[in-house]
């Protein structure tokens, strides 16, 4: 069995605000082994980014309350003091942010930004750090890296900036790479390149990846395990094939149905999830997805637990419908209205 790098147990992150307590993350558990890709999928406001940022200690604030454990190689990161966290950040765990336009500093050269990241964690001279930066840029597929290393971010295209971000995240050879919507701001053609790159680099650097996205299509190729989040909770969790071929949670069906499918006949209407995610201050009672769920019934007023309900172990969900019922109705929900032939 591969080395277990990360073990998150019942993580809760609450923000105290003027309007009340925001339950951003409410009992999230998962683990991550070396060499694996974990996909975290959910809409805006489902708590997926807060989860990722908490792993890196980026949500620490006087108004934030944490509960649960984030064990990285056995150490609880939530209890780590800020100075120790600074050592850890970037060195052990790197992060790629969504928007490559705003996460690079426009007034510093690309190379200098990577050199700075390297020299923060390692005691090497500028010349060697720069040579490493050139190597990294080559590895992420920047043409003529020895010249482009001295470019400013505005001289790079969107896809190249995201590659530079990846190079920076990898600069200290982290064991865990967190990619928060790495392709959302990019063209589809570039999206395919970036996902492939992340998958390849994971093997080259022998690390694990957490890939956060709102689009299940993005994780279909590379993820090993998938977590579907809604309103701060995990609503379904399983191996990739379990989630794609035997989805148990109506929310997952909605996410699957929302993606326009080129491999199927064109439906009259796209299946979509009605309404929008609930306010995290004032959550609905019972199943959090109940107000938007087309299959909600009386029992949904009680909160379902995240447990295994299907034959295959390791596939968990939060839905009261019986497995038979789900399998009977889900195809219609996913496929939407078929075009009358």
């Amino acid at each position: 069995m591969a080395e277990r790098l990360l073990d998150v147990k019942d993580l809760q992150v609450h923000f105290n605000t003027e309007d009340g307590i925001v339950h951003a993350v409410d009992g999230v558990s998962f683990d991550l082994e070396r060499g694996k890709v974990l996909g975290i999928v959910g809409e805006s406001g489902s708590g997926k980014s807060v989860t990722a940022m908490t792993l890196l200690g980026l949500t620490r604030d006087v108004n934030t309350r944490f509960q649960g454990e984030v064990l990285y190689k056995g150490r609880d990161l939530l209890k780590l003091p800020e100075t120790a966290m600074q050592d850890f950040r970037g060195n052990e765990m790197g992060m790629i942010f969504q928007d490559p336009m705003t996460s690079l500093n426009p007034v510093y050269r690309i190379g200098n930004q990577i050199v700075e990241a390297i020299r923060t964690h390692e005691d090497i001279d500028k010349g060697r750090a720069k040579r490493r930066a050139v190597d990294l840029l080559r590895q992420v597929g920047i043409p003529r890296p020895d010249v482009r290393v001295d470019d400013y971010p505005h001289q790079f295209s969107g896809g190249m900036r995201q590659r530079a971000m990846i190079a920076m995240a990898l600069s200290c050879n982290p064991d865990v790479l967190i990619a928060d919507e790495p392709t959302t701001a990019l063209d589809v053609t570039i999206q395919a390149q970036i996902i492939e790159l992340i998958d390849r680099l994971k093997d080259d650097f022998n690390s694990a990846v957490i890939l956060i996205t709102h689009d299940l299509g993005v994780v279909a190729d590379v993820a090993d395990e998938i977590i579907v989040m809604y309103a701060g909770r995990v609503v379904e969790r399983g191996a990739k094939r379990q989630v794609f071929y035997d989805p148990q949670m109506p929310y997952t069906w909605g996410l699957l149905g929302s993606i326009p499918r080129l491999d199927r006949p064109k439906p009259k209407r796209l299946a979509s999830i009605t309404g929008s995610p609930p306010s995290l201050i004032n959550l609905p009672r019972g199943c959090k997805f109940r107000p938007r769920c087309p299959h909600a019934f009386d029992k949904c007023i009680e909160e379902p637990d995240l447990v295994n309900r299907v034959e295959e172990p390791g596939h968990l969900d939060r839905c009261w419908l019986s497995v038979q019922e789900k399998r009977a109705v889900r195809d219609r929900t996913i496929r939407g209205e078929e075009e009358a032939a």
């Binding site: 589809v188 390149q193 499918r261 080129l262």
Partner: peptide, 18 residues
């Protein structure tokens, strides 16, 4: 380049990376 949310089909098809 358009992602297909189906791991098997996604694997089968030839992806032309520009």
């Amino acid at each position: 380049a358009v992602p297909i949310p189906d791991p098997d089909l996604s694997e089968q098809r030839e992806r032309i990376v520009l």
